[in-house]
Amino acid sequence: MMLPTHALVGLALATPLALYAPEFAPAALLGALVGGILPDLDMYAGHRKTLHFPTGYPVAAVPAALLAVAWPTAATVALALGLLAAAVHCRMDVYGGGLELRPWEGTSDRAVYDHARGEWLPPRRFIAYDGSPGDLALAALVGVPLFVVLDGAFAVVVAVALTVATVYVALRRVLAELAPTVFRRVPEPLSEYVPERYDGS
């Protein structure tokens, strides 16, 4: 699924705690936002493998959550929610489309790499692909209530995420057609970071 959806779901995971314990709201929301985004920082370095750990994040989230309950500080709360959001991010990608330039074609059997099993998990395509109308619907379903509940900088983040999501969905198929042309012109030192799927095949 697209990055704005992951960011919004991360915020949604932290919002109940932020409302219940407002003293931890900034840490909880920021930690979950970072955790929701973090796995996709591998976009140009082994996407859905380098920073995606569908087994590792949940395993790490359990002791982090216990630590946050036993010793609640801004740091422990942020860590626990960050790991939880990263775990949910990886699971969401499994329920989305495959890792391919045109995921609506359904040709890839790779969703997320599971380091614990040493294999790629197949896409289940409950949300057809990143940037699909269903992806936008999920982002809106999560984001609109967040925009009402949250305030300040986090409300701005929600508004920006929903705007970016809408534009991305409108341009998703056009971007897939442009990608091979654009990325073929990347200079040599940087070309090794261009994912193979961008070759247009």
Rank of each mutant, 00 (worst) to 15 (best):
M1P: 12
M1G: 05
L3Q: 08
L3V: 15
P4F: 06
T5W: 06
H6G: 10
L11G: 07
A14D: 12
A25Q: 02
A25D: 09
A28F: 06
L29A: 11
G31C: 13
G31M: 12
A32G: 04
L33S: 09
V34E: 10
V34Q: 10
G35V: 04
G36C: 05
G36S: 05
I37D: 01
L38A: 12
P39R: 08
L41P: 03
D42Y: 14
M43V: 13
Y44L: 14
A45Y: 11
A45P: 01
A45D: 06
G46H: 13
G46R: 09
G46Y: 12
R48E: 03
K49I: 14
F53G: 02
P54W: 01
T55M: 09
P58N: 11
V59L: 15
A61L: 02
V62N: 00
P63D: 04
P63G: 12
L67G: 00
V69N: 03
V69L: 15
W71Q: 14
T73N: 09
T73Q: 15
A74D: 14
A75K: 01
V77C: 01
A78E: 00
L79W: 04
L79A: 15
A80E: 02
G82R: 01
L83D: 11
L84M: 06
A86P: 03
A86E: 14
A87W: 02
V88T: 11
H89W: 03
E100Y: 07
E100H: 14
P103G: 10
E105M: 06
E105A: 04
T107S: 15
T107C: 05
T107Y: 11
S108V: 09
S108H: 11
A111R: 00
E119N: 13
E119M: 09
D130H: 10
G131V: 07
G134H: 15
A137H: 07
A139N: 08
G143F: 03
L146Y: 08
F147I: 06
V149E: 04
D151M: 03
G152V: 04
V158A: 14
V164H: 04
V164P: 03
A165Q: 15
V167A: 13
L171E: 15
E177Y: 09
L178S: 06
A179S: 06
P180Y: 10
T181A: 13
V182N: 01
V182I: 15
R185G: 06
V186T: 11
E188I: 00
P189G: 01
L190P: 05
V194C: 00
E196F: 07
G200D: 04
G200S: 13
